[in-house]
């Protein structure tokens, strides 16, 4: 079992939280993990990504080689396309439909989604609306994690356990909200 995933988004959208949840769950499941992330200057509203690699055998490189990524999981549609050179031929793009427009030349939404739909394997999830219905748009990232969860090779139980480990100190309400978001994302992916 080996999964190479690029997490994409804009600084502040919570992709490092997605990475942390998968990371804890992977190690708890006895898998090897490498996860490279971006800190510092680019976090200020800039494009951010994390290379996440999980495997049942040791992993050498912290970076995913070009053309071999199994999935781009993005919380922002334009950011989903930024890392296409890394995607394997049969790889998946799973993205939130909610745009984050903090630049003047942000593309027209129609054209953007048309570009995503050109890809053989794509999944567009309205994570923002799902999260809002659950009570907080902040958990959009965990909805997206839910949407990808069937593909990770990690059980739902382990992922929920990781949410508990990571958000436990913020209180039971926060943990439950995140677990709901995870489940809702998983549901949405099946539709």
């Amino acid at each position: 079992m080996k999964r190479d995933i690029i997490l994409a988004g804009v600084g502040g959208q919570g992709i490092l939280s997605i990475a942390a949840v998968i990371g804890v769950a992977a190690v708890e499941s006895g898998l090897y993990l490498k996860q490279a992330e971006v800190h510092g200057m680019s976090q200020r509203g800039g494009a951010v990504q994390s290379h996440l690699r999980i495997s049942d055998t040791p992993i050498a490189s912290d970076l995913i080689p070009e053309g071999s990524c199994d999935m781009i999981l993005s919380v922002e549609p334009m950011e989903a396309l930024r890392y296409l050179p890394f995607l394997a031929n049969d790889g998946w793009v799973v993205t939130s439909s909610k745009t984050f427009e903090n630049i003047d030349d942000y593309p027209a939404e129609d054209a953007l989604f048309e570009e995503i739909r050109k890809l053989q394997n794509h999944l567009i999830i309205d994570a923002f609306s799902i999260a809002r219905e659950l009570g907080s748009q902040k958990v959009s990232n965990i909805v997206m994690l839910g949407a990808a969860s069937d593909y990770l090779g990690i059980t739902q139980e382990r992922l929920e356990g990781a949410l508990n480990t990571l958000f436990g100190r913020k209180g039971e309400d926060v943990v439950q909200l995140n677990i709901k978001a995870l489940k809702a994302g998983k549901q949405a992916q099946k539709k």
Binding site: V10, P65, G67, L84, F86, N102
Partner: peptide
């Protein structure tokens, strides 16, 4: 890994390109 491959003369498939529609998003 890609630079290492090229230096060792390992053939690489041409990767996908970043679509032109993707704009730079610098920190702000």
């Amino acid at each position: 890994p890609l630079l290492v491959k090229r230096a060792l003369e390992i053939a690489t498939e041409s990767a996908r390109e970043i679509p032109a529609i993707v704009k730079n998003r610098p920190p702000a």
